[in-house]
Amino acid sequence: MSETRTSSTAAADQLVSRTRWRAFEVALWLSAVAVIFLLPSKMLLFTEIAILALFAISLDLVLGYAGIVSLGHAAFFGLGAYSAGLFAKHVFGDPTLGLLVAGLASAAFGFLTSFLVLRGSDLTRLMTTLGIALMLGELANRLDSVTGGADGLTGVTMRPILGLFEFDLWGRNGYIYSLIVLFVLTMLARRIVHSPFGLSLRAIKSNPVRAAMVAVPSNKRLVTIYTVAAAYAGIAGALLTQTTGFVSLDVLAFHRSADVLLVLVLGGVGYLYGGIIGAIIFTLLRDVLSELTPQYWMFWIGLILVAIVLTGRDRLTRLGSWRPARQAGGTR
């Protein structure tokens, strides 16, 4: 009797300690703020990292926590980007309202398509998500009176953020804005994955049958997390539109879905910061290499990615995991 008590309190302790802030998290956010002052000339690059990181977190929610593989996550990213662009162009150019609209549009689409995605196994899911993204891409191409088709959507004029801060040519305000959105949404995601809801997702991921036996409504949970992730991706897309003032067809392109998957694998699946760390590594690598050799950087990035994934990934994630959670076992 007393033995079960101690083990259950130990488990509870472990769960609580997981939610605690770790040193590397604090360091990461502090350095994200520090670059505003230290590297003012690289604001655009950091904006891109913040957006990609948010997109990767969105994928992590479905892939890392719920185990849904997706090759078409760009569908939500692109939908958010176009919603934000069209909203700013035709209705109202306020950025925060635009984010909300884009998030809602993508969430609605995510909710509807989640029922298709839930049918079938991993391979079917890959094909379904890929297909949905391709269909949206072709739709955006076809509806050129609305989306501008292959020429892209121009004439998106953003108002100042909160009516106070203009999007400047140096990209400083754009970065601060993206960083704040990323921070708020990461904290929210952190809350979600550490909640009982998040734990039940992990249970579904590791053993759906067993999860069902302890009365976890797996379909309902998956629909919910898929919808939330879609909203996240939509907001990431909206950030891209708002900071660049332009939307082109490639927000829906296959390479976006592939890139974000790569980023997530690079940084580590199933712990939110994997997306952020992956986005930092991927974007910086690409930037440095493509400046060194504009023609052949793809070769080098490919080589480095293979090397990292094969040898260094474990070490990379271990660096970020002075997490005591490991010995709990089972959940990952």
């Binding site: 000339s41 690289k42 655009l44 690059l45 891109e48 892209g152 040519l169 140096w170 990209g171 891209l240 660049t244 332009f246 082109s248 490639d250 927000v251 493509s290 400046e291 504009p294 023609q295 950087w297």
Partner: peptide
């Protein structure tokens, strides 16, 4: 100063902005 945008519009824009600013 040659930069590669890989045919992606938001890259073109970012590179243009960086070239102008930096």
């Amino acid at each position: 100063i040659v930069r590669d945008d890989a045919g992606t519009a938001d890259q073109t824009r970012r590179l243009a902005q960086e070239l102008v600013v930096n």
